[in-house]
Design a protein around this nucleic acid. Structure first.
Lengths: 226, 226
DNA sequence: TTAATAACGATAGTAATACTATAGCTTAAT
DNA sequence: ATTAAGCTATAGTATTACTATCGTTATTAA
């Protein structure tokens, strides 16, 4: 399997970069190191200047790949959702039971991420920390409608749509499949964040993905009535 | 009732301001106009300079009340949660049934806000739009642990705790009351935002608080098993 | 192999931001 | 009448998020 997937490439919609970073060494290096630096500094303190220093280049070079910090973050988040989608498709392939597939989807959403060696230049653990802490900032802006038109959120929406289809299979009468899926996705992030920083807002202990999964699975299955 | 409440003051924890804006005309003016301006421009484009111009003063004056833009936002969000708490306490007073009180709480969380004339200098409709679009930014920072220690999130946590108590009354065996409440609070915001800007992620139509309430109420009651 | 061209590095510059500092003026209480 | 708090006005700083230009280097196509 590893070998089969070794040259798989996660496709990211072309509107979230100026020049595809996956087509050059420099580009991959920018992505790789930006993940580590955003994770370390947080989005607010992260700058292209600091990134340029870290990778021994100049701001100008980074600007050739990404128009702005916001676009770079959008790229990383898009990459993450495409990667989750690929994992979802693989993990649910050949599984007949829709209930089983839904459980797998919830597991992926709430799940422990391990370094996925198929994409050597991406530290998926650091990336998930970024997604938890920063991804809401991608859409919580005044430019959200423009960005949406430009396709910034395609991969997130695609992932959610896929999971919503499973819910519809299980209970075609349920009225809020899309809302329930986006709720689970957002909740996975906020509960992870709360467990680390605002523990009184959650019953999930730090680093217990199993508890998060139990919470979400119970909520989803009871809500859709299974 | 109106008269009784006319001189009620929403208490905001003293750590989220340098000088209590509610003790002076200037301070109330700053709060009032900051709500309108943040709603209009979004947090990123909002600056103390623009606010100072709008109210005919200088940055220095605003800095005497709030150390930073982030602190001002924290103040507004804290005010909002204290206000919701006051509404919750009033609306659930003398109601015996815990189920009924929980429904009221969910209604307040998902509910249509109307201008509350008890607090003349606060435009609660604009404030709720700010809460929906900006409140995650208050905690999604590298300073969250410091801010938490300083009490930036007291009023949010207090509100959630109150609702969690109701859930425990209804089903003492339910394992995730705190998580469920914070999920409902966060979801109320994200679903409102999605219905406005990313409609494919939700089944709730713009401005239909009743749908949001139906979605959340069903989810909560089924999850806790009633 | 050469010639064209794309990519990169180095440097400079700009408007705006998020503050900090200071000094003088006004007003209201002692 | 004095004091002090609160406000206004002005100035200044480091940093940010870019934009622009230009020469060099690496890649590719003829």
């Amino acid at each position: 399997m590893k070998n089969l997937l070794a040259n798989l490439k996660i496709k990211v919609d072309e509107k979230v970069y100026l020049k595809d970073p996956d087509t050059s060494e420099k580009g991959r290096h920018i992505v790789e190191q930006s993940i580590l630096l955003i994770d370390e500094l947080g989005l607010e303190s992260f700058t292209f200047k600091k990134l340029a220093e870290k990778i021994g280049t100049t701001e100008a070079t980074i600007y050739r790949y990404f128009e702005s910090k916001h676009m770079l973050l959008s790229y990383l988040i898009s990459w993450y959702w495409s990667w989750l989608e690929y994992r979802l498709v693989f993990a649910t392939n050949n599984i007949r039971s829709a209930e089983e597939r839904l459980k797998i989807a919830i597991g992926i959403l709430s799940g422990k991420v391990e370094l996925d060696m198929n994409f050597v230049h991406v530290d998926e653990v650091a990336l998930q920390k970024i997604v938890v802490a920063e991804s809401a900032k991608v859409y919580l802006t005044k430019e959200v409608d423009d960005n949406n038109r430009e396709g910034f959120f395609y991969s997130y929406k695609r992932f959610c749509k896929r999971v919503a289809e499973i819910i519809k299979e299980i209970n075609p009468a349920y009225k809020f499949p899309a809302s329930l899926v986006s709720t689970v996705a957002e909740t996975a992030h906020s509960q992870k964040f709360f467990s680390l920083h605002l523990p009184s807002l959650t019953n999930i202990s730090d680093n217990k993905e199993s508890q998060l999964m139990e919470f979400l699975t119970e909520m989803v299955f009871k809500t859709i009535g299974k």
